[in-house]
């Protein structure tokens, strides 16, 4: 399987380096992704998944709307495009 490519609005597109979560992957790229608990319960790291699929590596305690993902709990499964809200 091809290495997943991660496209982020307002930031650059990069290849996933198999960090343990998508949030870690964003941080390695120095993209200021929001977060707090890193445990799937505060909801701060919620972003929109525009395209592609992610795989959850940790259970989340939040209900998510269609197209929303928690970056601290998942990794990309395919090429993905995500949108981080401005504030």
């Amino acid at each position: 399987m091809a290495i997943p490519r991660i496209k982020v609005n307002h930031f650059h597109t990069f290849y996933y380096q198999y960090e343990s979560t998508l949030l870690d992957a964003l941080e390695v790229q120095e993209i200021p992704a929001p977060y707090n608990c890193r445990g799937g319960y505060c909801g701060c790291c919620k972003v929109r998944l525009i395209d592609g699929e992610v795989e959850y590596v940790r259970e989340t305690l939040l209900d998510m709307d269609e197209g929303e993902i928690l970056t601290c709990c998942c990794v990309p499964k395919t090429h993905i495009e995500i949108e981080i809200s401005e504030s």
Binding site: P34, Y35, N36, C37, R38, G39, C42, E86, S87
Partner: peptide
């Protein structure tokens, strides 16, 4: 809307970093 004025708080609010 504004950016988090205390960005270093995140590290303290995280449970396993």
């Amino acid at each position: 809307a504004a950016q988090n004025p205390l960005p270093w708080m995140n590290a303290w609010l995280s449970s396993d970093n």
